[in-house]
Design a protein around this nucleic acid. Structure first.
Lengths: 200, 200
DNA sequence: ACCTGAACACCGTTCAAGT
DNA sequence: ACCTGAACACCGTTCAAGT
Protein backbone atom coordinates (compact mmCIF):
# COMPACT_ATOMS: atom_id res chain seq x y z
CA UNK A 1 0.00 0.00 0.00
CA UNK A 2 3.06 2.28 -0.10
CA UNK A 3 2.06 4.36 -3.12
CA UNK A 4 4.77 6.98 -2.72
CA UNK A 5 8.55 6.91 -2.35
CA UNK A 6 9.47 7.42 1.27
CA UNK A 7 12.47 9.66 0.77
CA UNK A 8 10.45 12.90 0.74
CA UNK A 9 7.51 14.03 2.88
CA UNK A 10 4.81 14.92 0.32
CA UNK A 11 6.23 16.13 -2.97
CA UNK A 12 9.40 15.97 -4.99
CA UNK A 13 11.80 17.85 -2.80
CA UNK A 14 11.91 21.61 -3.01
CA UNK A 15 8.46 23.06 -3.55
CA UNK A 16 9.67 26.63 -3.42
CA UNK A 17 12.09 26.17 -6.29
CA UNK A 18 9.55 24.13 -8.25
CA UNK A 19 6.97 26.89 -7.91
CA UNK A 20 9.40 29.57 -9.02
CA UNK A 21 10.47 27.56 -12.03
CA UNK A 22 6.90 26.85 -13.04
CA UNK A 23 5.99 30.49 -12.51
CA UNK A 24 8.79 31.67 -14.75
CA UNK A 25 7.63 29.37 -17.53
CA UNK A 26 4.07 30.68 -17.24
CA UNK A 27 5.34 34.25 -17.14
CA UNK A 28 7.29 33.73 -20.36
CA UNK A 29 4.54 31.80 -22.16
CA UNK A 30 1.33 33.46 -21.04
CA UNK A 31 2.25 36.69 -19.29
CA UNK A 32 2.01 37.94 -15.75
CA UNK A 33 -1.72 38.54 -16.03
CA UNK A 34 -2.58 34.87 -16.37
CA UNK A 35 -0.39 33.65 -13.57
CA UNK A 36 -2.50 32.03 -10.86
CA UNK A 37 -1.26 30.49 -7.65
CA UNK A 38 -3.88 27.77 -7.87
CA UNK A 39 -2.86 26.77 -11.37
CA UNK A 40 0.78 26.81 -10.33
CA UNK A 41 -0.06 24.47 -7.48
CA UNK A 42 -1.97 22.23 -9.87
CA UNK A 43 0.97 22.04 -12.29
CA UNK A 44 3.30 21.22 -9.44
CA UNK A 45 0.98 18.48 -8.19
CA UNK A 46 0.30 20.04 -4.82
CA UNK A 47 -2.76 21.39 -3.06
CA UNK A 48 -3.79 24.99 -3.71
CA UNK A 49 -2.94 25.96 -0.15
CA UNK A 50 0.59 24.60 -0.20
CA UNK A 51 2.31 27.59 -1.84
CA UNK A 52 1.40 29.80 1.10
CA UNK A 53 4.03 28.02 3.23
CA UNK A 54 6.73 29.37 0.89
CA UNK A 55 5.26 32.65 -0.28
CA UNK A 56 3.04 34.59 2.06
CA UNK A 57 0.97 35.81 -0.87
CA UNK A 58 1.01 36.15 -4.62
CA UNK A 59 2.97 39.39 -4.54
CA UNK A 60 5.73 37.69 -2.58
CA UNK A 61 6.14 35.15 -5.35
CA UNK A 62 6.22 37.90 -7.97
CA UNK A 63 8.84 39.73 -5.93
CA UNK A 64 10.98 36.60 -5.79
CA UNK A 65 10.70 36.27 -9.57
CA UNK A 66 11.75 39.88 -10.05
CA UNK A 67 14.71 39.52 -7.72
CA UNK A 68 15.89 36.43 -9.59
CA UNK A 69 15.57 38.50 -12.76
CA UNK A 70 17.89 41.18 -11.36
CA UNK A 71 20.39 38.47 -10.44
CA UNK A 72 20.44 37.15 -13.98
CA UNK A 73 20.58 40.58 -15.58
CA UNK A 74 23.36 41.81 -13.31
CA UNK A 75 25.30 38.62 -14.01
CA UNK A 76 24.88 39.00 -17.77
CA UNK A 77 26.04 42.61 -17.59
CA UNK A 78 29.05 41.70 -15.46
CA UNK A 79 29.97 39.03 -18.01
CA UNK A 80 29.70 41.56 -20.84
CA UNK A 81 31.92 44.06 -19.06
CA UNK A 82 35.31 44.10 -20.80
CA UNK A 83 37.71 46.68 -19.35
CA UNK A 84 40.20 46.08 -22.16
CA UNK A 85 37.77 47.55 -24.71
CA UNK A 86 37.82 51.22 -25.73
CA UNK A 87 35.06 53.32 -24.20
CA UNK A 88 32.47 53.28 -26.94
CA UNK A 89 32.48 49.55 -27.72
CA UNK A 90 32.65 48.86 -24.01
CA UNK A 91 29.48 50.87 -23.37
CA UNK A 92 27.81 49.49 -26.47
CA UNK A 93 28.43 45.92 -25.31
CA UNK A 94 26.70 46.65 -22.01
CA UNK A 95 23.79 48.34 -23.72
CA UNK A 96 23.38 45.48 -26.20
CA UNK A 97 23.38 42.98 -23.35
CA UNK A 98 20.64 44.91 -21.57
CA UNK A 99 18.65 45.08 -24.79
CA UNK A 100 19.10 41.35 -25.34
CA UNK A 101 17.82 40.55 -21.86
CA UNK A 102 14.81 42.82 -22.37
CA UNK A 103 13.86 41.18 -25.65
CA UNK A 104 14.35 37.66 -24.30
CA UNK A 105 12.41 38.34 -21.10
CA UNK A 106 9.91 41.12 -21.79
CA UNK A 107 7.37 40.04 -19.19
CA UNK A 108 10.04 39.55 -16.58
CA UNK A 109 11.46 43.01 -17.27
CA UNK A 110 8.02 44.50 -16.81
CA UNK A 111 7.73 42.70 -13.49
CA UNK A 112 11.16 43.90 -12.40
CA UNK A 113 10.21 47.51 -12.93
CA UNK A 114 6.60 47.24 -11.76
CA UNK A 115 5.64 49.72 -9.10
CA UNK A 116 4.25 47.24 -6.59
CA UNK A 117 6.40 48.06 -3.65
CA UNK A 118 5.82 46.03 -0.57
CA UNK A 119 7.73 48.76 1.23
CA UNK A 120 10.02 46.05 2.62
CA UNK A 121 10.78 44.18 -0.60
CA UNK A 122 11.27 47.54 -2.24
CA UNK A 123 14.67 47.72 -0.58
CA UNK A 124 15.76 44.55 -2.31
CA UNK A 125 14.41 45.90 -5.59
CA UNK A 126 16.35 49.12 -5.31
CA UNK A 127 19.39 47.02 -4.56
CA UNK A 128 18.70 44.99 -7.70
CA UNK A 129 18.51 48.13 -9.79
CA UNK A 130 21.73 49.38 -8.23
CA UNK A 131 23.61 46.18 -9.01
CA UNK A 132 22.25 46.33 -12.53
CA UNK A 133 23.32 49.87 -13.25
CA UNK A 134 26.48 49.36 -11.20
CA UNK A 135 28.50 48.05 -14.12
CA UNK A 136 27.68 51.27 -15.91
CA UNK A 137 28.97 53.34 -13.03
CA UNK A 138 32.36 51.60 -13.15
CA UNK A 139 32.71 52.21 -16.88
CA UNK A 140 31.87 55.86 -16.49
CA UNK A 141 34.17 56.42 -13.54
CA UNK A 142 36.99 54.69 -15.43
CA UNK A 143 36.45 56.82 -18.50
CA UNK A 144 36.43 59.98 -16.43
CA UNK A 145 39.77 59.03 -14.89
CA UNK A 146 41.25 58.65 -18.37
CA UNK A 147 39.72 61.92 -19.49
CA UNK A 148 37.58 60.17 -22.11
CA UNK A 149 34.40 61.58 -20.59
CA UNK A 150 33.79 65.04 -19.22
CA UNK A 151 33.95 65.54 -15.48
CA UNK A 152 30.79 65.63 -13.41
CA UNK A 153 28.92 63.52 -10.88
CA UNK A 154 29.35 59.97 -12.18
CA UNK A 155 26.07 58.89 -10.59
CA UNK A 156 24.24 61.58 -12.50
CA UNK A 157 25.83 60.43 -15.76
CA UNK A 158 25.10 56.82 -14.87
CA UNK A 159 21.42 57.46 -14.16
CA UNK A 160 21.04 59.38 -17.36
CA UNK A 161 22.79 56.77 -19.48
CA UNK A 162 21.10 53.84 -17.74
CA UNK A 163 17.67 55.37 -18.10
CA UNK A 164 18.25 56.07 -21.77
CA UNK A 165 19.34 52.48 -22.42
CA UNK A 166 16.37 51.20 -20.43
CA UNK A 167 14.07 53.35 -22.53
CA UNK A 168 15.25 51.82 -25.78
CA UNK A 169 15.05 48.35 -24.25
CA UNK A 170 11.53 48.96 -22.90
CA UNK A 171 10.31 50.31 -26.24
CA UNK A 172 11.78 47.29 -28.00
CA UNK A 173 10.46 44.73 -25.55
CA UNK A 174 7.04 46.35 -25.67
CA UNK A 175 6.93 46.17 -29.43
CA UNK A 176 6.98 49.92 -30.09
CA UNK A 177 10.36 49.77 -31.78
CA UNK A 178 11.08 47.48 -34.71
CA UNK A 179 13.01 44.55 -33.21
CA UNK A 180 15.16 44.37 -36.34
CA UNK A 181 16.47 47.90 -35.91
CA UNK A 182 16.56 47.97 -32.10
CA UNK A 183 20.24 47.06 -32.17
CA UNK A 184 20.98 50.01 -34.46
CA UNK A 185 18.95 52.30 -32.22
CA UNK A 186 20.85 51.33 -29.10
CA UNK A 187 24.16 51.67 -30.94
CA UNK A 188 23.09 55.09 -32.20
CA UNK A 189 22.07 56.09 -28.69
CA UNK A 190 25.51 55.34 -27.27
CA UNK A 191 27.22 56.96 -30.23
CA UNK A 192 25.21 60.15 -30.03
CA UNK A 193 25.41 60.33 -26.25
CA UNK A 194 29.18 60.27 -26.60
CA UNK A 195 29.51 62.51 -29.64
CA UNK A 196 26.37 64.62 -29.47
CA UNK A 197 23.79 65.26 -32.15
CA UNK A 198 25.06 68.71 -33.05
CA UNK A 199 27.41 69.15 -36.02
CA UNK A 200 31.17 69.20 -35.34
CA UNK B 1 -43.89 55.90 -5.76
CA UNK B 2 -41.75 57.48 -8.50
CA UNK B 3 -38.36 57.07 -6.90
CA UNK B 4 -36.31 57.99 -9.96
CA UNK B 5 -36.24 60.91 -12.38
CA UNK B 6 -37.89 59.90 -15.63
CA UNK B 7 -35.53 61.68 -18.00
CA UNK B 8 -33.11 58.75 -18.29
CA UNK B 9 -33.73 55.03 -18.73
CA UNK B 10 -31.85 53.43 -15.80
CA UNK B 11 -28.85 55.47 -14.71
CA UNK B 12 -27.56 58.99 -14.90
CA UNK B 13 -26.93 59.40 -18.60
CA UNK B 14 -23.70 58.18 -20.05
CA UNK B 15 -22.61 54.96 -18.37
CA UNK B 16 -19.59 54.54 -20.61
CA UNK B 17 -18.13 57.90 -19.64
CA UNK B 18 -19.03 57.37 -15.98
CA UNK B 19 -17.21 54.03 -15.96
CA UNK B 20 -14.11 55.49 -17.58
CA UNK B 21 -14.01 58.36 -15.13
CA UNK B 22 -14.44 56.09 -12.15
CA UNK B 23 -11.82 53.72 -13.53
CA UNK B 24 -9.30 56.50 -13.90
CA UNK B 25 -9.83 57.55 -10.30
CA UNK B 26 -9.28 53.99 -9.11
CA UNK B 27 -6.24 53.66 -11.34
CA UNK B 28 -4.69 56.76 -9.84
CA UNK B 29 -5.60 55.95 -6.23
CA UNK B 30 -5.22 52.20 -6.00
CA UNK B 31 -3.40 51.03 -9.09
CA UNK B 32 -4.33 48.92 -12.05
CA UNK B 33 -4.10 45.70 -10.06
CA UNK B 34 -7.04 46.51 -7.85
CA UNK B 35 -9.35 47.66 -10.57
CA UNK B 36 -12.41 45.42 -10.72
CA UNK B 37 -15.31 45.72 -13.12
CA UNK B 38 -17.73 44.67 -10.42
CA UNK B 39 -16.53 47.34 -8.02
CA UNK B 40 -16.65 49.91 -10.80
CA UNK B 41 -20.25 48.95 -11.45
CA UNK B 42 -21.03 49.19 -7.73
CA UNK B 43 -19.51 52.68 -7.49
CA UNK B 44 -21.48 53.76 -10.52
CA UNK B 45 -24.71 52.37 -9.06
CA UNK B 46 -25.36 49.87 -11.79
CA UNK B 47 -25.52 46.09 -11.95
CA UNK B 48 -22.31 44.14 -12.37
CA UNK B 49 -23.35 43.00 -15.84
CA UNK B 50 -24.06 46.47 -17.17
CA UNK B 51 -20.48 47.44 -18.14
CA UNK B 52 -20.35 44.65 -20.69
CA UNK B 53 -22.70 46.65 -22.92
CA UNK B 54 -20.01 49.31 -23.26
CA UNK B 55 -16.79 47.32 -22.94
CA UNK B 56 -16.73 43.77 -24.24
CA UNK B 57 -14.34 42.79 -21.48
CA UNK B 58 -11.99 44.22 -18.89
CA UNK B 59 -9.14 44.58 -21.34
CA UNK B 60 -11.32 46.72 -23.59
CA UNK B 61 -11.86 49.17 -20.73
CA UNK B 62 -8.13 49.26 -20.00
CA UNK B 63 -7.45 49.90 -23.68
CA UNK B 64 -9.88 52.81 -23.66
CA UNK B 65 -8.12 54.26 -20.61
CA UNK B 66 -4.75 53.95 -22.32
CA UNK B 67 -6.00 55.60 -25.49
CA UNK B 68 -7.39 58.52 -23.50
CA UNK B 69 -3.97 58.75 -21.88
CA UNK B 70 -2.29 59.08 -25.25
CA UNK B 71 -4.73 61.81 -26.19
CA UNK B 72 -3.90 63.80 -23.09
CA UNK B 73 -0.16 63.25 -23.41
CA UNK B 74 -0.08 64.16 -27.09
CA UNK B 75 -2.11 67.27 -26.32
CA UNK B 76 0.23 68.33 -23.52
CA UNK B 77 3.24 67.83 -25.77
CA UNK B 78 1.66 69.80 -28.58
CA UNK B 79 0.95 72.63 -26.14
CA UNK B 80 4.57 72.60 -24.97
CA UNK B 81 5.91 72.75 -28.52
CA UNK B 82 7.28 76.24 -29.13
CA UNK B 83 8.92 76.65 -32.56
CA UNK B 84 10.24 80.09 -31.62
CA UNK B 85 12.60 78.55 -29.06
CA UNK B 86 16.20 77.59 -29.84
CA UNK B 87 16.78 73.88 -30.28
CA UNK B 88 17.95 72.88 -26.83
CA UNK B 89 15.28 74.63 -24.75
CA UNK B 90 12.69 73.52 -27.28
CA UNK B 91 13.64 69.86 -26.82
CA UNK B 92 14.01 70.27 -23.08
CA UNK B 93 10.49 71.68 -22.80
CA UNK B 94 9.07 68.63 -24.56
CA UNK B 95 11.09 66.25 -22.41
CA UNK B 96 10.04 68.01 -19.21
CA UNK B 97 6.41 67.83 -20.25
CA UNK B 98 6.73 64.09 -20.85
CA UNK B 99 8.41 63.69 -17.48
CA UNK B 100 5.68 65.70 -15.79
CA UNK B 101 2.95 63.54 -17.30
CA UNK B 102 4.77 60.40 -16.22
CA UNK B 103 5.11 61.57 -12.63
CA UNK B 104 1.52 62.77 -12.44
CA UNK B 105 0.12 59.59 -13.99
CA UNK B 106 2.50 56.75 -13.24
CA UNK B 107 -0.10 53.98 -13.31
CA UNK B 108 -1.65 55.31 -16.49
CA UNK B 109 1.75 55.46 -18.19
CA UNK B 110 2.36 51.84 -17.24
CA UNK B 111 -0.98 50.93 -18.77
CA UNK B 112 -0.20 52.89 -21.94
CA UNK B 113 2.98 50.93 -22.52
CA UNK B 114 1.70 47.57 -21.27
CA UNK B 115 2.21 44.74 -23.72
CA UNK B 116 -1.38 43.49 -23.73
CA UNK B 117 -2.07 43.80 -27.39
CA UNK B 118 -5.49 42.81 -28.50
CA UNK B 119 -3.99 42.65 -31.98
CA UNK B 120 -6.77 44.98 -33.13
CA UNK B 121 -6.45 47.64 -30.43
CA UNK B 122 -2.72 47.46 -30.87
CA UNK B 123 -3.12 49.53 -34.03
CA UNK B 124 -4.66 52.35 -32.06
CA UNK B 125 -1.91 52.05 -29.47
CA UNK B 126 0.83 52.29 -32.07
CA UNK B 127 -0.99 55.33 -33.43
CA UNK B 128 -1.03 56.80 -29.92
CA UNK B 129 2.71 56.30 -29.58
CA UNK B 130 3.25 57.85 -33.00
CA UNK B 131 1.23 60.95 -32.15
CA UNK B 132 3.12 61.21 -28.89
CA UNK B 133 6.57 61.02 -30.42
CA UNK B 134 5.39 62.99 -33.43
CA UNK B 135 6.12 66.37 -31.87
CA UNK B 136 9.68 65.17 -31.45
CA UNK B 137 9.96 64.28 -35.12
CA UNK B 138 8.97 67.79 -36.15
CA UNK B 139 11.54 69.39 -33.88
CA UNK B 140 14.27 67.12 -35.19
CA UNK B 141 13.38 67.61 -38.83
CA UNK B 142 13.29 71.39 -38.29
CA UNK B 143 16.68 71.36 -36.60
CA UNK B 144 18.17 69.30 -39.39
CA UNK B 145 16.92 71.79 -41.97
CA UNK B 146 18.68 74.59 -40.08
CA UNK B 147 21.83 72.52 -39.76
CA UNK B 148 21.57 72.48 -35.96
CA UNK B 149 21.55 68.69 -35.91
CA UNK B 150 23.60 66.29 -38.00
CA UNK B 151 21.99 64.71 -41.03
CA UNK B 152 20.55 61.21 -40.83
CA UNK B 153 17.22 59.44 -40.80
CA UNK B 154 15.02 61.68 -38.64
CA UNK B 155 12.89 58.73 -37.57
CA UNK B 156 15.96 56.98 -36.25
CA UNK B 157 16.97 60.06 -34.27
CA UNK B 158 13.41 60.48 -33.06
CA UNK B 159 13.13 56.90 -31.81
CA UNK B 160 16.45 57.16 -30.06
CA UNK B 161 15.62 60.48 -28.42
CA UNK B 162 12.07 59.50 -27.56
CA UNK B 163 13.13 56.20 -26.02
CA UNK B 164 15.79 57.92 -23.95
CA UNK B 165 13.30 60.46 -22.62
CA UNK B 166 10.81 57.69 -21.91
CA UNK B 167 13.49 55.81 -20.00
CA UNK B 168 14.14 58.69 -17.65
CA UNK B 169 10.40 59.23 -17.22
CA UNK B 170 9.77 55.53 -16.54
CA UNK B 171 12.58 55.38 -13.98
CA UNK B 172 11.22 58.47 -12.26
CA UNK B 173 7.60 57.35 -12.28
CA UNK B 174 8.64 53.94 -11.00
CA UNK B 175 10.53 55.46 -8.11
CA UNK B 176 14.01 54.33 -9.18
CA UNK B 177 15.15 57.89 -9.74
CA UNK B 178 14.98 60.54 -7.06
CA UNK B 179 11.94 62.68 -8.01
CA UNK B 180 13.75 65.80 -6.83
CA UNK B 181 16.58 65.35 -9.32
CA UNK B 182 14.56 63.85 -12.18
CA UNK B 183 14.28 67.27 -13.76
CA UNK B 184 18.05 67.68 -13.71
CA UNK B 185 18.49 64.21 -15.17
CA UNK B 186 16.18 64.89 -18.09
CA UNK B 187 17.85 68.25 -18.71
CA UNK B 188 21.26 66.55 -18.59
CA UNK B 189 20.05 63.90 -21.00
CA UNK B 190 19.04 66.45 -23.63
CA UNK B 191 22.20 68.47 -23.06
CA UNK B 192 24.51 65.50 -23.41
CA UNK B 193 22.60 64.05 -26.36
CA UNK B 194 23.17 67.34 -28.13
CA UNK B 195 26.73 68.00 -27.00
CA UNK B 196 28.04 64.51 -26.27
CA UNK B 197 29.74 63.19 -23.17
CA UNK B 198 33.23 63.30 -24.64
CA UNK B 199 35.48 66.30 -23.96
CA UNK B 200 35.65 69.12 -26.51
C1' DA C 1 7.86 21.21 9.35
C1' DC C 2 5.01 20.63 5.59
C1' DC C 3 0.88 19.84 3.38
C1' DT C 4 -4.48 19.02 2.81
C1' DG C 5 -9.56 20.10 2.55
C1' DA C 6 -13.05 22.95 3.33
C1' DA C 7 -14.67 27.52 3.69
C1' DC C 8 -15.05 32.56 2.65
C1' DA C 9 -15.32 36.47 0.02
C1' DC C 10 -14.34 37.89 -3.96
C1' DC C 11 -13.60 37.92 -9.35
C1' DG C 12 -14.91 38.14 -15.05
C1' DT C 13 -18.13 36.58 -18.37
C1' DT C 14 -22.45 34.96 -20.25
C1' DC C 15 -27.32 34.86 -21.04
C1' DA C 16 -32.15 34.66 -20.45
C1' DA C 17 -35.36 37.93 -19.06
C1' DG C 18 -37.21 42.37 -18.02
C1' DT C 19 -38.27 47.75 -19.19
C1' DA D 1 -31.23 49.94 -26.74
C1' DC D 2 -30.00 49.30 -22.20
C1' DC D 3 -29.92 47.09 -18.02
C1' DT D 4 -30.89 43.19 -14.36
C1' DG D 5 -30.41 38.65 -11.80
C1' DA D 6 -28.89 34.33 -11.68
C1' DA D 7 -25.46 31.10 -12.88
C1' DC D 8 -20.75 29.29 -13.98
C1' DA D 9 -16.08 28.65 -13.49
C1' DC D 10 -12.63 30.54 -11.68
C1' DC D 11 -9.60 33.34 -8.12
C1' DG D 12 -6.47 34.50 -3.34
C1' DT D 13 -6.32 33.75 1.46
C1' DT D 14 -7.12 31.54 5.85
C1' DC D 15 -7.32 27.87 9.14
C1' DA D 16 -8.36 23.70 11.46
C1' DA D 17 -6.77 19.23 10.85
C1' DG D 18 -3.85 15.57 9.29
C1' DT D 19 1.12 13.15 8.53
Amino acid sequence: MAHMPENRPYHHGDLRAALLQSAERTLREKGAGSLSLRELARETGVSHAAPSRHFKDKQALLNALALAGYDRLAEALAAAEDPTLPLQPRLTALARTYLGFAMDNPELLELMYARKHDPDASEQMTDGVDRTVGSLERVIADAQKRGEIIAGDPRHLMHLTGAAVHGVAAFSAGGWLDPDTAGDTIEGLIHHLLHGLMPR
